[in-house]
Nucleic acid binder design. Sequence first.
DNA 1: GCCAACGTTGGC
DNA 2: GCCAACGTTGGC
Length: 142
Amino acid sequence: MTQYWLMKSEPDEYGWADLVKAGEGVWDGVRNAQASNNLKAMQVGDLALFYHSRTGLEAVGVMEISAAAFPDPKDKTGRWVAVKVKPVHPLNRPVTLKAMKARPSLADMAMLRQSRLSVAQLNADEWGEILKMAGNGSAAPA
DNA sequence: GCCAACGTTGGC
DNA sequence: GCCAACGTTGGC
């Protein structure tokens, strides 16, 4: 079963464009227990939204988990994990935080309930709704 | 084991 | 740039 995720990064640090350019990226630097648990639950083939935090405040692209959790190479304590991701396709229209908040059907989204959660899970309905808002509905593959 | 102090994140 | 929310640390 494919799981759906939303992953935040500050575009000044590491943005969608950086990932596209690289072709594959290591999603490291997560230092939050809840977010880390989400990383550990990811499986190859799961899909995730790339969300720009701080500057942008919008989901901009879809990526795929290309490697399951492994120890974060930058973490000396050995406590934290990273995953690998590959870009799948950009969103036709970025979906802003504001737009997500305005949707009653998205009110229960984990990341809306807890804004500081940098890696959050989405259910299939939420995923479908956001992709629809982006103009990347199920009928319109990349 | 509790809780105050501190650091970090992210929306505004 | 500021501040609220949240997590973590460290003294007791």
